[in-house]
Amino acid sequence: MGDRIAEVIVLAEDLRSGRLVQRYVERALNPRGVRLRIAPAGKQSAYDWVIQSYPVEMKSHRNRVSKGANLSAVAVHVDADNLTVQQRSSQLAEALRAQGEPPRGPGERIAVIVPRRNMETWIHGLTAVPVDEQYDFKRDEAGRIAPNTRQRERMCDERIGPAAQELHRLSRPNAPSPPDTLPALILAIEELRRLER
């Protein structure tokens, strides 16, 4: 890696997801600043907000780079939920096209991070909890909303730091992914490496 990254903008659906990316970025890139932007309200509008904000952030980033701020980067988070990573990524690409913004180039420091099912799946998976991509931490085994959701959320928050540490370990150049690594996480690791180019 060359010069120290100056600033990273993190665009995320929610605070917990944004904080995992922020903590990863701080650990992996040690930037001078991280600016976290999270969606203002509930789940559906959170997704819409990220889709709408993405072209705006891309335009701002490209504007900064064109004026010499080469060491800036953008990380965008949106949960896959019940879609595939490819489907969500396509929606983001379509949002760029609809706003007349050129597609993301291979050399741009812009990472698109799409956890499946959502970021909590990764937070648990990265901290040695056995999960698959259908895992929903807010529901019990019967699919009902778990009664102790607040307790679960707190435990999830306490795992953000260790999860970011593990994500950093996995994303190091040539670091092998364990065989049980979640498929969406393998794609995200490649995306995160874009930030360091």
């Binding site: 203002p40 309200a41 509930g42 789940k43 559906q44 509008s45 819409d48 907000w49």
Partner: peptide
């Protein structure tokens, strides 16, 4: 607990 479909920031 804001309206989940209201696309405004909490501050707004």
């Amino acid at each position: 607990k804001p309206d989940a479909d209201l696309p405004l920031t909490p501050a707004e």
